[in-house]
Write a protein that binds this DNA or RNA. Structure first.
Lengths: 333, 333
DNA sequence: TTGAAAGCGGTACCAC
DNA sequence: GTGGTACCGCTTTCAA
C-alpha cells in the first residue's frame, strides 16, 4: 500500500529540520522564528503537504466529525434540517456523517454504537419511530456516558438528558384549528399517519384542546401511510366535515386528493391545512395552506448547539423551541 | 461516569496477556489457540470493547469511509441517488460523508482536498455547475493521483478518467419528443434552466435531433431558475406552441403553472413532459408526465462500482448507462 | 502458541 | 528558537 501524501518526516528530511520544528511552524507556533516559518510553509505548499487527519485525531482524541441520524431523507422536513446543519458545519472544521435509520430501532442502535466508539465527536438525531414506540434507548445512554453529546430535534425523548430543538407542535396545531374556527368552520377533522410519534401526539393534543373548548366532538382519523387515502375517503363519505387539519405530508396530500375527487369546493365546502414543503404546497391546486416548521432554522440551531456543547461540556441542557408559522394559501382563505 | 472506551492495553492488563495476543485473538487469527481466543473474546465483550477506528485506520492506511459530493439536496433526484447509495453502503463496513457544494467550484475543490488527504477512501460525485462551466478540475485529478477513486454520476466530466454512471439523456429526450410528435403535436418547445450543464446539453441535443428530422425550427427557451416563469410566459404569449418538453423540475413546474394561468387546456391545447419526483408529479394537476431517471438505481450502481474499485484498483474504467423511462400521466395522454 | 517491539503520522513536553 | 522523544491505539513482523 502506498501513500502519496508527503509527511512531516519527509519534509523534515528535505528541509534538514526536525519534525517537531516543522509541525510547530505549520501550526503557527510562536516558538518558531518567522524566517524558518516562511521557509517551511513554502516548501510544504510546494509539496502540497496535507496533514494526516487520522494521525492528528488519534493523537488529539477527537475526530472532528459529527453524526447526523435521521429516519428518512425523502421527507422534505428532514432534508431542510440537513441543509441547515450543513450551512453551519461546512464552514467549521467539522465533517458530517449522515445516517438514515428508515425508522428502525435496530439500525439506529447500530449506527450509534459503531460511530460513538471513535469515529464521531457527537450526534444530531431525530429518533426513529420504532425507538419511540418501543421506548428502548440504551444506545443513546451509551453514547452519552461515552462522552459523545447528543442533540435531539423534532423527535425527542423525554428520558434522555440532552440538548433538544423542537417545534411548538401543540400550539401550532392549536392555533391552526382556532384559525379554522374563526373562519366559521364547525366540523373539523384531524387526519394523521404519524400518531405513534411524539410529534403526532402533540399536534393531536393541540387539535383536541382547540376543539374541546368549543363545540363538537373531536374527529380523529389515523392510518398508516399506505391506507390513509382509503381512510380519508371513508371519513368524507360518512361525515359532513367542513375542514381538515392534516398533520403530515401524506395525510395532507391524501386529504386534498380525495376532496378533489369528491368534487368538494375548496375552501368553501372544505378547508384544508396541512404539512408540506413550500414547493409542493405552492404547486398543488388549490395551493395548500401549511404549517411551516422552519426545518432550516432547526438544523442551524442543532448544529450551533452541538458545536457549543463540544466546547463547553458542562453547561446546562438547553431545550430550544421553534415557533411554526401558518402559511395561508388557497385551501384555507 | 464511564471512562471512554477500553483499549487493548487495558484488556491486556486485565487478562495478563500481551497486547498483540489480544489483537490477534479478536481478529480471529489462526495463531491463537481456541481456548484463549474464547477467554479473550468473552472479557472483551464484558467490557464492551470497541476498537479505536482512528488508530486502526491510521495503521492500515484506509479510512473505511466514502465521500458523496452533490450540488444540492433539495433536488429530488440527488436525494434519490443518496438513498440508493445508502442502501448499498450501510450494510457494508463503510461510512458515508455527505457534502453539498451548492454548485460552487470552490466548495467542491475544498471538499475534495480536505477529504482526500486522509479522511475518505473514495468519492461519488455529481460535479457542480460551476465546475462544468469553468472546466476546472484539478481537484479531481489530485484525488485520483492521490489514489482515491472517483465515481461520477449524472454530471460527469469527459476529461476525467474514472468510472461513470449516467442516464441516456440524449435518447430519453429524443424519445419523449418523438412521442409528442406521434401524438400529433407539431410545435414543440424545449424549456430549460440547466443548459449550462452537460445533462442539459445532452437533453437539448436529443430534442434537436427529434425536431430537425421533422418539421419546424427548434424553439428553445432557457433562463436561470428565478426568471424561468417570465420566460415561459413570454414564450406562450408570442408563439403558438402545442407541446413543451421541460428538462428540469423548475422548468416543468413553471411551464405547467403558466399554462394553467393562461387557461390552456392540457393536454389538448398544450402537452407537457417534464422532470419531477413521483410524488410531485402525481400531485400536480393535471398530473405531470415525467421522464424518470431512476435515481435510486443510479445510487446503487455508483456505490457498487466504488466498492468494487476499492477492491480491484486495476480493472478497466466502466461507464454505465441507465435508461430513463417515460411515465405517462395526464399532461400528455 | 504467545510476546516484544517497530511503526502508522502527528502533537507536545522538555532539553539544549 | 530548535530538536529529541514519548505517546495516541492498533496491526504486524519476528523472536522466543
Amino acid at each position: 500500500m502506498h501513500r502519496n501524501n508527503i509527511t512531516l518526516k519527509e519534509l523534515s528530511k528535505k528541509l534538514g529540520l526536525a519534525i517537531s520544528t516543522i509541525s510547530k511552524a505549520l501550526n503557527d507556533s510562536h516558538e518558531i522564528s518567522d524566517a524558518t516559518k516562511k521557509r517551511i510553509k513554502q516548501v510544504a505548499k510546494q509539496y502540497n503537504y496535507q496533514p494526516n487527519k487520522m494521525a492528528r485525531n488519534l493523537k488529539l482524541g477527537k475526530t472532528n466529525t459529527i453524526s447526523v441520524v435521521i429516519p428518512s431523507i425523502q421527507n422534505y422536513f428532514f432534508s431542510q434540517v440537513l441543509i441547515g446543519i450543513e450551512s453551519i458545519i461546512a464552514p467549521s472544521a467539522y465533517n458530517i456523517i449522515i445516517s438514515i435509520t428508515s425508522e428502525s430501532l435496530q439500525k439506529e442502535a447500530q449506527v450509534f454504537t459503531t460511530l460513538s466508539s471513535s469515529v464521531v465527536d457527537g450526534f444530531i438525531v431525530a429518533v426513529a419511530e420504532e425507538t419511540q414506540t418501543t421506548q428502548k434507548f440504551h444506545h443513546f445512554k451509551a453514547a452519552l456516558t461515552n462522552n459523545k453529546p447528543i442533540i435531539m430535534f423534532d423527535r425527542v425523548l423525554k428520558s434522555i438528558p440532552c440538548d433538544k430543538v423542537v417545534v411548538n407542535d401543540f400550539e401550532s396545531v392549536f392555533n391552526a384549528t382556532k384559525h379554522l374556527i374563526t373562519k366559521g368552520k364547525n366540523t373539523i377533522a384531524l387526519v394523521s399517519t404519524i400518531n405513534n410519534l411524539s410529534v403526532g401526539k402533540s399536534r393531536t393534543k393541540g387539535y383536541y384542546k382547540a376543539i374541546n373548548t368549543t363545540f363538537h366532538k373531536p374527529i380523529i382519523v389515523t392510518a398508516p401511510k399506505n391506507k390513509i387515502k382509503k381512510t380519508v375517503k371513508k371519513l368524507l363519505s360518512n361525515k359532513t366535515v367542513d375542514a381538515i387539519i392534516a398533520i403530515d405530508e401524506e395525510a395532507s396530500l391524501a386529504s386534498l386528493k380525495i376532496a378533489k375527487k369528491r368534487n368538494l369546493q375548496i375552501p368553501k365546502q372544505l378547508s384544508i391545512i396541512g404539512y408540506a414543503s413550500k414547493t409542493m404546497a405552492k404547486n398543488l391546486c388549490p395551493k395548500l395552506t401549511t404549517i411551516n416548521q422552519h426545518g432550516f432554522t432547526i438544523g442551524q440551531d442543532c448544529a450551533l448547539l452541538l458545536l457549543d456543547r463540544l466546547k463547553h461540556n458542562d453547561k446546562p441542557m438547553v431545550k430550544k423551541i421553534i415557533n411554526a408559522t401558518l402559511n395561508i394559501r388557497e385551501t384555507c382563505l
